[in-house]
Design a protein around this nucleic acid. Sequence first.
DNA 1: AATTTTAATGGTAATCATTATCATTAAGGG
DNA 2: CCCTTAATGATAATGATTACCATTAAAATT
Lengths: 123, 123
Amino acid sequence: MRETRQMKLILNYVDNSYDHPTAMEVYEFCKKSVSNISLATVYRNLNKLSSLGLIKQIKMPNNIDRFDHVHDEHPHFICIECGEITDLDKSLDVSKIAPKNVKITTYEINFKGVCEKCQRKGE
Amino acid sequence: MRETRQMKLILNYVDNSYDHPTAMEVYEFCKKSVSNISLATVYRNLNKLSSLGLIKQIKMPNNIDRFDHVHDEHPHFICIECGEITDLDKSLDVSKIAPKNVKITTYEINFKGVCEKCQRKGE
DNA sequence: AATTTTAATGGTAATCATTATCATTAAGGG
DNA sequence: CCCTTAATGATAATGATTACCATTAAAATT
């Protein structure tokens, strides 16, 4: 894997972000530094970095993927009404349930439900 | 929610399936009984049944959603090479990390990595 | 430091799972 | 049996993501 300017920019941005950006949000950020960066380059790097385990891909109910840093593993709560993601700081010992005979690269724990804001809205 | 023939067929199929069918696979099954069922009807019912918590939607790396029954909660292992899902039978007490102040309807625990078959293939 | 190799890029077209639209149908309550 | 309206069937539209290909630039080699 080559250390291109684009790859470093994308990795650095996601690795320091705490707001689970979409590919488009990463693209908008990158354009500030590399004005002609291609959206395809952003997607290619996000995919590669995910499969290398350097960032994490979050599959969302609305089919617009989000990305997260990978230091500080944590579960997520996803509101099924507004789509907001919040980080849960409590960690979990998954060693007991992790399967054997396979090479685990990552895992995800997502709680889904209705956030406080949307509950109030619904009343 | 009305108990249409299509809805009962779809719910019954997913609720008794252990192979995580895609919307297209559900559609193919339903056509055997209701030959002119619309793919849109399958999607509409899968979405509604998911949001009601009667079935579970599994977001896959290749963006083709799969669906699962919801009795017998269990974590999944998803191979990032071939995309195969396997059920993990060990359960997990998530009560300690579940967030408060929100209404949890479901949660998902997915391990990701390379399955045995794909590891052998890679050598 | 010049050359070579080839992975990565930019620009853009293509893909395709999913959703939207709308006229028609059929639950199911009164 | 009607009436309301949620659900359906058929199909067009959407849009996030991927594929393509000529060009560029890492980084290894000379």
